[in-house]
């Protein structure tokens, strides 16, 4: 039997086999812990309308660290980047079009 269509054993083990040093994982872990403490601390201070944006910003930074390092995206091929970025674009579609409703409900109707 020929080998051409027999990729099943190789799928998922593409060129993304770069291993970051253990120190990098520890640094990311420490950063995540610091941001967690920061989240709790920020929630205890009354920043008025800024509480939510700050909490969200911290969450985005933490998610980015997890995606890039713990999920190895930073060393992954371009196709993985396309998949990750398009997933966030879709999330953007969900948010933008949903807010097109919530943010315009108060607009006057002529």
């Amino acid at each position: 039997m020929a080998h051409a269509p027999d990729h099943a054993d190789h799928v998922g083990h593409g060129p993304a086999h770069h291993r970051a040093p253990i120190g990098m994982y520890l640094a990311v872990f420490v950063a995540l812990m610091v941001f967690t403490v920061l989240t709790v601390a920020a929630s205890r201070v009354n920043l008025h309308q800024w509480n939510t944006p700050i909490a969200l910003a911290i969450a985005v930074i933490k998610a980015t660290l997890v995606i890039l390092w713990f999920m190895h995206v930073i060393h992954s091929p371009r196709m993985t980047w396309i998949v990750v970025i398009s997933s966030f674009l879709w999330l953007g579609v969900l948010f933008v079009l949903t807010f097109s409703d919530y943010l315009t409900r108060g607009w006057p109707i002529y």
């Binding site: 079009l97 409703d101 315009t104 607009w107 109707i109």
Partner: peptide, 10 residues
Amino acid sequence: GISIYSAMVF
């Protein structure tokens, strides 16, 4: 009950 402006876009 969604916004009429949003409804027009959709």
